[in-house]
Simulated scan of single mutants.
Amino acid sequence: MAGIIHPFYESHRGAMEAAMQHRLDLAESMMCERAHLSDIDGIRQEVMDEFEIVLTQMPYVGGAASRMSDFFMRLMGFMAIGRVLRRHGVSLSVIGEIERETYKAQLLTVPEAERVASGRQFLSSENQTLLRDQAAKSHQQAFPEDFVYDFVEPGPGDNFEFGINYTACGFCKFAARHGDKEILPSICGLDFDAYATRGIHLERTQTLAGGASHCNFRFSRLPSDQDE
């Protein structure tokens, strides 16, 4: 019996499917050359079919009121790609490479000025105020499958602008529930390019997926954006 897609994700389904098709366009040559797959049309269809399953599995975490809904909508499709490539015997390291390079290529299709402006907005004092508020609200755990996190202020001698410690991760919960722990690190690896393409340096030395007590995100401006 087919699962039900939450109405919030259903309303964004067209955009998410278009993004998936774009990713598959960008990934085709890598799937041939690095994963040694030949029936690319078949793989594409298998990925899109798997994405339909993922859509029914995506947990609702508050919709437009939660910043994490956007993370799910932008990144959960990579779970579908990882599942299909793994079924075809592709190694975890190659899956990680393909997904990260595909995502970076997709991000770079956005004009640089727009990306840099988005990065500056993320690092702005206004957004930091919003993140503090949302971090506090995350501890209420209104949605069991959501993220829980703390806002981290820099201390004396720190060279980051602010940080976020994730003590519970929606992707980890999803992976545990649906048997995706093996491919979860590929999702974690996407974060670095997601920020770098917006002029933000992300430093992270541990993750929940890797067995740590929390993911320690630390954000600062990339040198190229310092004096602009």
Rank of each mutant, 00 (worst) to 15 (best):
P156D: 08
E101H: 03
A142S: 10
D146P: 05
G157P: 13
E153W: 14
G163W: 04
A168I: 12
R120I: 09
L131Q: 07
E153P: 09
S118L: 09
D158I: 10
Q128W: 03
P144E: 03
K137L: 13
P156V: 14
F160Q: 04
D150A: 10
F160G: 03
F147R: 06
A113T: 05
V110K: 00
L123W: 06
G155T: 14
G170H: 08
K137P: 11
E145F: 13
A117N: 08
T109P: 02
N127Y: 00
V116I: 14
Y149C: 14
S118W: 04
A136L: 13
Y149S: 14
S124H: 11
E114D: 04
N127R: 10
Q140E: 08
L123F: 08
A117Q: 05
P111G: 00
Y103A: 07
N165I: 14
E153Y: 11
G119M: 01
F122C: 07
N127P: 10
E161I: 11
G155R: 11
E114G: 01
T129G: 15
Q134R: 11
C169K: 14
L131Y: 08
V148P: 12
Q128P: 06
A142G: 13
G119K: 14
Q128I: 11
L108F: 01
G119D: 05
F171Q: 03
I164F: 08
K104T: 05
T129K: 03
K104W: 05
F147T: 11
Q141P: 14
E101G: 02
T167Y: 02
L130M: 13
F147P: 10
Y166P: 09
L130F: 12
V152C: 07
R120S: 09
E153Q: 12
N159R: 13
Q128G: 03
V148T: 15
F122V: 04
E99T: 12
